[in-house]
């Protein structure tokens, strides 16, 4: 990691140069409630003072909600052609926990089975991180996601009159060389950066007890209590999955055109909370009840990938809490496990 300084008065110039020269996606105010990451045409559209974004920016770009995978033509034989769509893009303004979410997707889509569609887009993406204020539902600090050391090319930390820039890749370095007036760091810059991080970490107020959860989850897995309570509230609407920066499940469909000769294979985001997710041939359903599906989700988010990759798939962004109209709250439920065991 290389550290540099970008003075505030050169910051806008850097962004303007980016907007003028590269395809850029960044945070823009969408409505009274949300920001959205969209294509930026004018530097003044960028609003880095965001808190909430419905769909995680990296997931939106790398694993779009619907995507064509293969085009085919039926005849004597079946001709098919893989569709890989990607274009060089700079993603500006993504925060630490969303980078952590992207790092999880990177790992998932390149392990066991290499997903070419995802990888092509990822290779073409340059990532510039910034810190944003956590929402009240955020517990990224418990998921080691309030600060990241990989996944980005550049990371800008706002030290008041200047940005402390962490450079993680040659690609990031080249971008600075080309578009920004940077200078070397001095000792006080590093001190100020550490001071800043101490203050920043204190902004995460939500407290959860992961140790209790991990110690006790298996004990309560087959008990009814907490799962029945949650099932009564749950709509099985899938909102928690679709807004999650690390939910990667998708459904693949064949779409045939009206000429009945040509068509495409496409995928779309799926959700483990809907009954059809576990439905297989012969009408058998592996997870017919809401209880089954709810505990599967918590296991997937908090245990499965801790065992497999050494890191939770939950990054603590709090989106599922905000999206849930039934007020199911993963942070509260992590804490509730202890109480359940004592009963």
């Amino acid at each position: 990691m290389l550290y540099k300084i970008l003075d505030k008065n050169h910051h806008k110039e850097f962004l303007s140069n980016l907007v003028a020269n590269v395809k850029m996606v960044g945070p823009k105010k969408k409505d009274d409630s949300c920001h959205d990451f969209t294509s930026i045409k004018d530097v003044d559209e960028i609003d880095t003072a965001y808190q909430k974004t419905t769909i995680p920016p990296a997931k939106k770009i790398l694993f779009p909600s619907t995507e064509n995978l293969v085009r085919f033509r039926l005849g004597e034989t079946i001709e098919s052609e893989g569709l890989l769509e990607s274009s060089e893009t700079v993603l500006f303004g993504i925060n630490a926990w969303d980078i952590a979410g992207m790092n999880f997707l990177d790992r998932f889509f390149s392990t066991d089975f290499a997903d070419e569609n995802y990888i092509a887009k990822r290779k073409a993406l340059t990532v510039i991180g910034i810190d944003t204020e956590p929402t009240e539902t955020n517990f990224a600090h418990y998921m080691d996601s309030e600060y990241v050391i990989e996944g980005f090319d550049l990371y800008f930390t706002d030290l008041g009159d200047r940005f402390f820039v962490r450079i993680a890749t040659a690609k990031g370095n080249a971008l600075l060389d080309r578009f920004a007036h940077i200078k070397d760091i001095e000792e006080n810059d590093l001190k100020d950066f550490n001071k800043y991080m101490n203050v920043y970490r204190k902004k995460f107020k939500l407290e959860i007890n992961m140790k209790n959860f991990l110690d006790n989850f298996e004990n309560i897995y087959d008990k009814k209590g907490v799962w029945e309570e949650l099932a009564e509230k749950c709509y099985s609407c899938g909102s928690c999955n679709l807004v999650c920066p690390t939910c990667f499940c998708f459904n693949v469909k064949d779409d045939i055109n009206l000429d009945l000769k040509t068509g495409q294979k496409m995928r779309e985001w799926d959700s483990c909370m809907i009954p059809e997710y576990g439905l297989v041939a012969g009408e058998h359903n592996f997870r017919p009840s809401k209880e089954n599906r709810l505990k599967q989700r918590y296991r997937c988010k908090l245990i499965t990938y801790k065992e497999k990759y050494g890191k939770n798939s939950c990054v603590g962004c709090g989106r599922c809490i905000e999206a849930c109209l039934a007020k199911i709250n993963i942070a509260e439920d992590i804490n509730a496990i202890k109480k359940e065991v004592n009963v």
């Binding site: 419905t54 099985s236 985001w269 059809e276």
Partner: peptide, 20 residues
Amino acid sequence: PNYPVCIECKRNGNTCVYEL
């Protein structure tokens, strides 16, 4: 589909209308 509108709404990146 036999799943709720929320799925499509989130695929479309909408802000939940309850929030509005």
